[in-house]
Write a protein that binds this DNA or RNA. Structure first.
Lengths: 365, 365
DNA sequence: CTGAAAGCGCTTACAG
DNA sequence: CTGAAAGCGCTTACAG
């Protein structure tokens, strides 16, 4: 009678419709269509129901099913920035694992902003996601994330670990990555080095710093030059800014720079370039992550690979396990050095200087 | 009794719980909490219900509500590739508009693969999304997309129009963009030009080709060199490949190249570079889209801006309108030229040639 | 202004 | 093997 209150689209085919065509009760149709329950239904009925479903184009209403079963089949994926080239491969691998379990990922972005995180968590709670993969954790987020884990659904950390939290985490071994960076550059003969550090509220950057400077201090004669500040965001623009800060100090330039991610490394290379310094001839630059753009730039970027595919797969498997009620431990993947063109042997001769400053000295003297 | 079948988490606070604490029927609680219905409830009750909801931390179960109301609050966003730097800004702007209407976007990727499109549409149908924004349309997808629009929920096209379809579309005016590219390069004095074309099953690339070559043929003395093939994907790698194809022909090089998107332009620049040709001194390169990386590379890329923020917002507004039952027309946004460092005046002197081939000629002669 | 009932589309014990 | 019933959490006519 009330045409307006009914769904308009033809394809809101329901189990009732299927059952009607097949001539059975809709609960029987439900069982016939459920692989785990089909054995409760006679072969003949099964066939009839399936045919009816096929000809009608029936699709189970996932959220109706979810409501009944007490789950939604949705996983929240909280990311700081989907524009970071490291992210898409990770999202893809993660989604593959989720989809194999009929789960769908909902991506929300925080842009490393507190209020956005709160809002993201709010919506995911209202959506009743079955679990969350948080790739956005900043030091200080422990409580919020753990509360969600306690009150709504399981949360696992990915990429960014949170030492002060009991939430399990899948990430790279960033300390080892920093060490690897240092040892490689030292092996190339570099004695004066610097690092462009990511924000201090993100543990991986702290870890990379620690690994790098620790491995360096184990070497005699190696000097770690201070940039004086860290990046506000681990972005190209900040890479440019910090590199210029380094150049502008007036002190001798390092012969090698370790940037805390690939994007900052690209910024640094372009900044060097625009200051008349060549990479790698004057200054070697080493990135971190091995995101897709690392091999697609000039010079191709030497970097530390932190396998995003594997981290994505493991993180997905970890939430799925926690949803099943299993406990999962932390998982660190081992980073690997990928040598390309942006690093070179240190020259035996004296320190490179920004052309302008060396020119200045020449004219002054 | 049966502890196992009930939700475990404390926060599955339901309307019943709230009503219990407030001492009212749960239907009354529902009204008290609904801004559009709160006037049906006495002030005192309203206050009590709200307080109960707040102290219990009640959140409406969005999918339960959706089931009752016949909508889910979800919009499917079908994209070929979230790794394309043009995409994140578009996703962000689009999401802003959707969120203002309490809608959530579900992103699925097709990688321009037929089977993935089918699967994507399948899942979105099972999710009963209220609408779809398809940024993945390839020529030939008309039927599938229109069927979804007819049977499941409204589909609007974004970025890629589909001339053979009645689905409404929000995109850039790609023909005008191609013309703009041609006129700009001609204005710089270039007489021998080439374009690196994207796949022929994507209308925007066809449009860019058409605009470019049409504007060029209107000029006397301008020559459009044939590359001989199009890109299989509009990617960096294909940009590299096509540029090498151009260089390897043995014919004189163009002095300006129009790449059908920024990513291909970057590939082309790197390919030129690795062949000893400088951009822009030897060859100017013009991109398309003005994705974020265009201003963050060396040389900064001259490109055609097709405002992703605006396209995203309009596309979101368009689905929302269609969901409300309104018809919406096609919308073309006007592209604009963004001059940067990768293009320069054509030299008055003779054609640039790949160094190797010119060297060869020198030694041979 | 409040409550009781029906129902969104499904699943799942429970009878027969 | 099949069906009838209850219920997931909500909203919304409909009575009172």
């Amino acid at each position: 009678m009330d045409g307006l209150s009914r769904p308009v689209r033809s394809s809101s085919i329901t189990l009732r419709d299927v059952a009607g065509v097949a001539g059975v009760h809709y609960s029987t149709a439900s069982k016939a269509l459920d692989p785990t329950k089909e054995r409760l239904v006679s072969l003949a009925t099964r066939a009839r129901v399936r045919e009816a479903a096929a000809t009608l184009g029936y699709r189970p209403h996932l959220f109706a099913r979810g409501l009944r079963r007490g789950k939604t089949g949705m996983i929240g994926l909280i990311l700081p920035d989907i524009g970071n080239p490291y992210i898409p491969p990770l999202v893809r691998s993660l989604r593959e694992v989720l989809e194999a379990d009929e789960m769908t990922a909902i991506i929300v972005e925080t842009e490393d902003d507190d209020r956005r995180l709160v809002r993201a968590l709010d919506s995911l709670a209202a959506l009743r996601v079955d679990g969350v993969i948080a790739g956005c954790a900043r030091i200080g987020d422990e409580d919020r994330l753990e509360e969600f884990d306690r009150e709504v659904s399981p949360v696992v950390l990915a990429i960014r670990r949170l030492p002060g939290s009991r939430l399990s985490c899948v990430s790279a071994d960033d300390v080892a990555g920093g060490e690897l960076a240092a040892r490689y550059l030292v092996g190339l003969g570099h004695l004066r080095l610097a690092q462009l550090e990511g924000p201090a509220d993100v543990q991986p950057f702290l870890d990379r710093s620690e690994g790098f400077s620790r491995a360096l201090s184990a070497q005699r004669r190696c000097e770690l030059l201070e940039v004086g500040e860290r990046a506000a965001h681990p972005s190209y623009d900040e890479g440019v800014r910090l590199a210029h800060a380094l150049i502008g100090r007036g002190e001798p330039m390092p012969t090698a720079i370790f940037a805390h991610n690939d994007t900052m490394a690209l910024g640094a290379i372009d900044a060097l370039h625009s200051s008349g310094l060549r990479c790698p001839q004057d200054v070697s630059v080493l990135g971190f992550n091995d995101s897709p753009l690392a091999e697609r730039c000039t010079p191709a970027l030497t970097t530390i690979r932190t396998p995003s595919g594997e981290i994505g797969r493991r993180a997905a498997a970890a939430v799925l396990a926690r949803i099943r009620g299993e406990e999962v431990g932390d998982q660190l993947t081992t980073p690997a050095l990928v040598p390309r063109r942006s690093t070179a042997r240190a020259l035996a001769v004296g320190p490179a200087r920004p052309p302008s400053s060396s020119r200045r000295k020449v004219t002054v003297r």
